[in-house]
Design a protein around this nucleic acid. Structure first.
Lengths: 203, 203, 203, 203
DNA sequence: CATGAATGAGAGTTCATTCAT
DNA sequence: GATGAATGAACTCTCATTCAT
């Protein structure tokens, strides 16, 4: 079995090599610019080789998209250590914003990129997005149970929360805060976030 | 001077012709699909001609982006008929959301598309975005003056408001509400908006 | 008008250049081997240039196919100088066979090549083939009117005649007469043709 | 010797497996579409394996071509049960036509496909084709001996017969009967065949 | 002012074949 | 004997842009 094992490991390594290279291109170039050829060049293999590991370009994008959600989901779990629901939610949002700042190429894939490649709508009702959103809803439900967001349904509140953090980071990532000096943009984002949390969270 | 005047007018007419054709392509095809050749075909001129009026493709996109802001700014002005500051603000947000729903290609250019194409950062500190945002800030200032958003600075409040509406429409436009049936998505958007307004607006 | 005229002429010249090059490739290489790149190389232009004159590869094939039928139709008309119906028909067949021998690449396109590129079935019910066949049917009808092919319908007789000559030349062109020394193959073809004509033609 | 025997048997089995898979691809896809990789996939071996049994793709095609002739030869033998020479010949032709209709992929390989692939000319003077043709010649000789095809040499008569049936089926297979409704094409073929037989066969 | 021919680069993808293991 | 990773060359086609006319 060990030969097969090694081969399997090699195969996984190669897939990872391709995915890493693709991701790096995502950062430096702009999304629409990444091409199979450039990926091949980066890993110093022939273009054909990539097709031994991925059916086509879309499959690469979809894989990266899943990796992104996995990483995000893991980071999201950190809030579980906080017991007080509202503090937990506040931290939840901060993690979201920081994830986007620190992993812009992942965030792009998860929530901004045009869906064609990822086939969001077809693939199992966008399971990845759903799971993430449901985890947020749980947290909001806990808040409701503790008297926050009085008289609001959990769904609207969750959508609002998500919309807000998505809005703020995507304005930032797509450089629509150009009227604010770069060095202040992050502060502005967190200030706006505080504004949102304080107001919506009032008991 | 009148010959020059006529020439200027002709020039403007031609530019407009090109921009209109480009916009139409924007709507029918998907963004990354519009090409200089297709634009040329549509206006029944040769590809080379376009370069007499625009330096390159990016300049066309930038111009469209400006047209988008002009249209949006005009729609925004409608709120001026409302006197009560908070009601005015509520309407302000609704206009924003509806504009995005009804003019997705414009919204794309204004707030989503990667900045490379439209050279936001270089061009005059993104004047277009600034003017729009300042108009919103004015409205929020009026609210503050009337006791809403107590103890918050106008800038954070404005950023929060903008972030929120941008977030909600860009999740919608980029199909990240796949977990909600299409026919309910708009309702969800406005419900979340109400949630936001009621909570943040409390006196 | 003369400028436009010249341009039109240039355009036609270029199209012809491309078609000629394609046809030559048809002869040397085997059909499935001709490629846009090879055509481009042959005419010493870039591949993209070809697309300025032809929509795609299929259009080139279709054009060649039409040229082939035009040439064939013209050659076919020569029989009109012969009055006696049966002698006319005999000559008709000879012209057919000689055309195939002398223009194998055209014959390939007309009657052998897989139809995908030429879209025989879709395009106007294969007008080109029809016209040619109808001209043959006329000749056979004249023979019937003069007592040849007694008691046979014109359609079956025409199909038989066509099948025969097509069969003989396509065995030859596709090298299925390998059991006969090359230098004798043509004689064998015409001998078989005589056999066919004498037997079927009997009054 | 028995070890070698078994090995030989295994080897033949594997070759057959490959050939069968190739043929199936021939039927479902179109000829130019079959690829070594697809064959390998079908038999669930790696592409490299095929090269242990066949020198290259052409050799596979040649082998299939031989299998085709074997099958055809066996079907041809059925005429032996008919004693009267002309009736035998008439059946002979029918078998030929039906074989082509029912085994188009085989017929393609035997009589239509470009010779490059199957190297007809190099390989033993195209033994396969020869044997088949000689069997036909025998039948025609019997006819001659019984007063049919008076005053004709057996070779010309045989070539004529073969040309005719080949012509009719290859027009059919390559869709050059587009002017006739699909559902009538087979009837037309057999009608033309009758025309040929009645005329040429007259005592 | 306008043309439109031309290009070079690049896109995604498939292929027959080789060869170290 | 069998693998399967890898390649290099090939494929059709599209693009933004230039430039002689």
């Amino acid at each position: 079995m060990s030969i097969k094992d090694r081969k399997d490991r090699d195969r996984e390594k190669m897939k990872k090599l391709i995915l890493d290279a693709s991701l790096k291109l995502f950062i430096s170039e702009d999304y629409s610019r990444i091409s199979m050829r450039k990926i091949a060049e980066k890993i110093e293999y022939s273009p054909g080789t990539i097709y031994l590991y991925f059916k086509n370009k879309d499959e690469i994008l979809y894989e990266l998209h899943n990796m992104a959600f996995d990483k995000f989901y893991r980071e999201q779990q950190k809030v579980n250590s906080i017991k007080e629901p509202f503090e937990k939610l506040r931290e939840h949002g901060k993690i979201y914003i920081n994830f986007a700042i620190n992993n812009p190429e992942y965030y792009e894939l998860m929530f901004i990129m045009n869906a064609t490649g990822i086939e969001i709508e077809k693939k199992s009702n966008w399971y990845a997005g759903k799971r993430t959103f449901e985890f947020l809803m749980q947290n909001i439900q806990e808040c409701l149970d503790n008297g926050y967001f009085k008289s609001h349904d959990v769904f609207s509140a969750s959508m609002a929360m998500w919309s807000f953090v998505h809005g703020i980071v995507s304005l930032y990532l797509r450089k629509r805060m150009a009227m604010i000096p770069s060095e202040n943009q992050k502060d502005v984002m967190f200030a706006a976030y505080e504004f949102f949390m304080i107001n919506t969270g009032k008991k």
